[in-house]
């Protein structure tokens, strides 16, 4: 099977409670209907600004958050997926459907299946300063997944931890230290080592370098490249910096207000973006080249709140090409080229 992760119609709404009786008065629509497939061995970049839902999406895929609706399939055969779709569209809410979902849909996993998922899919957090328990020695931090899943113990465990730390570029003899004794870049390496402990197939990265310096960032990115090649990993890489995504990912999805608005190869997104938002994003990204100043396609206004998204196409209030159609219905991802999809009624 080529497809490792298959996300279908994923939605995550966070209820807002208000009033004396604390009734739900609204919802923050963090993820609002996302369809995405990640192929085995792919490095998919998820790009967007704050509030677009990319972090929520990644956390939902690894089941740190339970989705409101939709399905996430991890390494499931096409046949099974087709069967589930068929049963669902037939509208029958029978036990066969429920049991199939319990077996295959990450969204409904619990107990053993969930535990098993955790061995195969991991997430590396954004802030290396808060993602490691400050009161644990790093040898215990990295060994924790091995202990939880009872994979190795005792001496074998310690050897494995040493190897992992060496693999991510930390010198030996640091096992007894605490996180605060390391720099940001080193801490992120420890977090990566922890994620690799159970030999997962899929790792989601939530802006792993945004809290780090430029030179350290380059080191971490190269490390990720090497690890991917060595262990045959699949990456979901979240970032708000288009430049990083363009330079390391082999596929990019651009998100805006809970939806994917454009998907394609880095060259396509960077040189010929078809969605107006993607184009603004590319144009607004500063490059260290004094000749290439930001074009005056500066995007006006602010990102609307995901608690109150505009109707129809979420981008239309700021879009220079918006028409009535954009106000009424939401566009879906349509192919516009070789492996290039756009969700827009008037792609550029």
């Amino acid at each position: 099977m080529n497809t490792l992760v298959d996300i279908r119609r994923l939605k995550k709404y966070f209820p807002i409670v208000g009033g004396v009786l604390r009734r739900p008065v609204g919802a923050v629509k963090a993820v609002d209907g996302v369809n995405l497939t990640i192929r085995r061995g792919q490095w998919l970049g998820l790009v967007g600004e704050s509030g677009c839902g990319k972090t929520t999406l990644a956390k939902t895929v690894v089941r740190l958050i339970r989705p409101t609706s939709g399905h996430v399939y991890f390494d499931t055969s096409d046949a099974v997926k087709a069967e589930i779709e068929a049963l669902e569209s037939a509208g029958k809410n029978n036990s066969k459907l429920t049991s199939l979902l319990k077996e295959n849909d990450v969204a409904t996993f619990s107990g053993k299946r969930l535990s098993s998922l955790r061995r195969h899919a991991q997430l590396v957090h954004q802030d290396p300063f808060t993602s490691l328990d400050p009161r644990m020695k790093i040898k215990n931090i990295v060994a924790e997944p091995l202990t939880i899943h009872k994979v190795l113990s005792g001496h074998a465990q310690e050897t494995a931890v040493e190897e992992l730390l060496a693999r991510v570029g930390l010198s030996t003899g640091q096992l007894e230290r605490y996180p605060h004794q390391f720099s940001g870049g080193q801490r992120q390496r420890i977090a990566i080592a922890r994620a690799l402990a159970t030999k997962p197939e899929f790792i989601a990265f939530d802006e792993p370098t945004s809290a780090l310096d430029v030179s350290v960032q380059a080191q971490i990115l190269n490390l990720l490249k090497d690890l991917k090649k060595e262990f045959g990993l699949t990456y979901l890489y979240i970032t708000h910096e288009l430049l990083i995504a363009e330079s390391v990912c082999d596929h990019i999805a651009v998100m805006y207000l809970g939806r994917v608005v454009e998907m394609g190869r880095p060259e396509d997104i960077f040189h010929s973006p078809r969605h107006p938002y993607a184009r603004s994003l590319v144009a607004a990204t500063p490059v260290p080249d004094p000749k290439r100043r930001i074009g005056h396609i500066v995007l006006p206004g602010e990102v609307p709140s995901p608690a109150n998204p505009p109707p129809g196409c979420a981008f239309h209030p700021r879009c220079s090409q918006a028409t009535d159609e954009c106000h009424e219905s939401a566009p879906v991802l349509e192919p516009v080229g070789d492996d290039h999809h756009v969700a827009c009624f008037h792609p550029l």
Partner: peptide
Amino acid sequence: DYIEASRGLGASSARVILRHALP
């Protein structure tokens, strides 16, 4: 984050409380 990371690793609630939260 580190509490969430622990859960992400598959830690049981007991483990998270005793090993991470309380200390």
